[in-house]
Computed example of a mutant assay.
Amino acid sequence: MNAEWLTGRLCAGHGVASGTSNESPYPDGTIRMQTPVFMALGLDLTNCYFGTLNVDFSPLEVSLSNPDHLFEKVRWTELHPPETFSFWSVQIKAREAEVVGGWIYYPHPETKQRHWQPPTTLELIAPRLTGVNEGCTIHLHDERRRIKLVNTIRLRARLLEFLKFRVLASQQTFFEADSLVKRQQWLSSMFPEALQLSEQDLDQVWTQARSLYTES
């Protein structure tokens, strides 16, 4: 297995996507309900199993960029406000002899009311795979390399240390006229690896740097 394949473990999901949970308000499963809606928007999932594979990469967190499809404010049920979804086309390997084409399925957490996934987990939609069970190894490949696994704790610590001397050298002026765009532009030239962090993580590091390294 070369470095272009990402390796995780199949883990139990909420049972809502497939409809196997007795507590779900969607007995048919959300994927079966959403499939015709996505079809109308231009994404055909009819060859896929009506459920998701939940793949855990912990302790690494998943960073995604440039989806193949972005569907905003999709109303697929009256029981839930409209949701935004992104999809990435990937290859999935459950065993050495079986490679299938599938999709990363990403309901945006800011539009989702419940059943969130941790940042270490991806949901996949694929044709039914044989012989897979909880705990087995799942390999994932994206030829465009839009999926990255990030050691968020270590990267945040490295960024905080990187900021130390720059903040101390300029004191409060370092944070003047700070904005997300300017921050990203500065990081892209000074510490581009940090752009793998979420906006929330970057905000936390900036707040911590301000607290630690500026005079009160």
Rank of each mutant, 00 (worst) to 15 (best):
L122P: 03
Y106G: 00
F165E: 14
Y106E: 00
E123N: 02
L160T: 04
G131W: 05
I125S: 00
K148Y: 14
N133Y: 05
V99D: 03
W103Q: 01
T130Y: 10
R156W: 04
E134L: 08
H139A: 11
A94F: 02
I125Y: 01
T121L: 15
L124F: 08
L124Y: 06
L140Q: 05
A97K: 07
G101P: 01
V132E: 12
R166K: 10
A157P: 08
P127M: 02
G102T: 10
V132P: 05
I104W: 04
Q113M: 07
R95C: 12
V167F: 13
N133A: 13
L140K: 01
T120V: 11
Q117K: 08
E96R: 07
H139P: 02
Q117S: 14
R146V: 09
R144G: 09
I104M: 08
L155H: 06
R95S: 14
N133E: 13
F165S: 14
G135C: 10
P107S: 01
T120F: 12
C136T: 02
I125M: 04
L149P: 02
V99K: 09
Q117H: 10
H108L: 12
E98R: 08
H141W: 07
K112V: 01
I153K: 08
L155N: 09
L168M: 15
L168Q: 14
Y106L: 10
H139K: 09
L159C: 09
E123K: 00
G102Y: 06
H115T: 00
